[in-house]
Computed example of a mutant assay.
Amino acid sequence: MRIGYTLMTEQAGPRDLVGFAADGERAGFDFEVASDHFSPWLEEQGHAPYVWSVLGAVAQVTERVELMTYVTCPIMRYHPAVVAQKAATMQLLSAGRFTVGLGAGENLNEHVVGRGWPPANVRHEMLAEAVQIIAGLFDGGSFNYAGDHFRVDSAKLWDLPETRTPLAVAVSGPQSVSRFAPFADVMVAVEPKAELCREWEAHRSARSDGPARKIAQLPVSWDRDPDAAVRRAHEQFRWFGNGWKVNAELPGPAGFAGATQFVTEQDVAGGIPCGPDVEPIVARVKEFADAGFTDVALVQIGGEHQQDFFGFAKSTLLPALREIH
């Protein structure tokens, strides 16, 4: 299983994120993913830089780790043709280390362009069209598209990498799996559901490129002081337990604060590994491995608590996680 590190743009500024990326590579992480947000979930997190600028800089201070957006919404704030251009440029800057992760987005980030927030079924229709556009532009040449939600008029990517940029798509259930598995390269999900992995491969059965990568994400709050770890997880990540059906609909940090006002520290500690011990993290990662996931990206909660975490990861955590099969 490959273990990644999350550049959490909601909890650190751009210069710090670039430094964390270099430190994560030195610590031994296999890949690094970055969130693509216009707003943090909660005011306590306090950041939301433009991730594509951050990733461009990260590509220059790293040499080995694979890079990925986790995930970009290509249906409102960005037109899919522009996402294709950005992804191709990142693949060139990183010398073939980039995967573009795509998803149907959250109201939190997409409402800022003033177009409202469509219902979930419409968002998935839009995402399906967006993926077709991005893949079509990756094919090279002049590209035209006329769909129910998007049009593309004689577009061409003039700087295409030799290695095609892999497409990853976030899924949550059978409907999204059946829609995206036949033509996406990588599956993204946040829960260790074996049925997602099985169905993804079943819908890819006609392809000849072998089993797909399946990438998950796991927040942790590592700290030598277990009480401090729990307090920090509650302060910055209590939104995580709402579930994505809720999280996708709330419009801003005030909404998330209201929705989580009765979430206790004990509630958060029950869902997120907190404290100095490696065993709870290993156990949670093993749940994803047992479900069929190939990769897990860890989120160390708290932007100012990364350096000690990198030391722990290099000496203790990553060796333990590499024992998982």
Rank of each mutant, 00 (worst) to 15 (best):
A130I: 06
I134Y: 03
A135L: 04
G136E: 00
D139L: 06
G140D: 06
Y145G: 11
Y145I: 13
A146T: 14
H149S: 12
K156C: 15
K156Y: 10
K156H: 14
K156E: 15
L157H: 05
W158V: 12
D159K: 11
R164F: 00
L167R: 00
L167Q: 03
A168M: 11
V169K: 01
V169H: 06
A170Q: 05
Q175V: 10
S176D: 00
V177W: 02
V177G: 00
S178N: 04
S178V: 01
F180P: 01
F180A: 03
A189Y: 06
V190D: 09
E191A: 12
P192C: 10
P192T: 08
A194L: 01
A194G: 01
R198L: 12
E199W: 03
A202L: 12
H203Q: 10
S208G: 09
S208L: 13
G210E: 03
G210C: 05
G210K: 01
P211S: 02
A212L: 07
R213N: 08
I215H: 09
Q217P: 00
L218D: 02
L218I: 12
P219C: 06
D223M: 12
D225L: 12
D225Y: 10
D225I: 12
P226D: 07
D227K: 13
A228T: 09
A228R: 15
V230T: 07
V230G: 03
R231A: 13
H234T: 13
Q236V: 05
R238F: 02
W244H: 10
N247W: 11
P253D: 14
A254V: 02
A254C: 02
G255W: 00
T264C: 14
T264A: 13
E265N: 07
E265Y: 00
E265P: 02
Q266P: 03
I272E: 08
I272P: 05
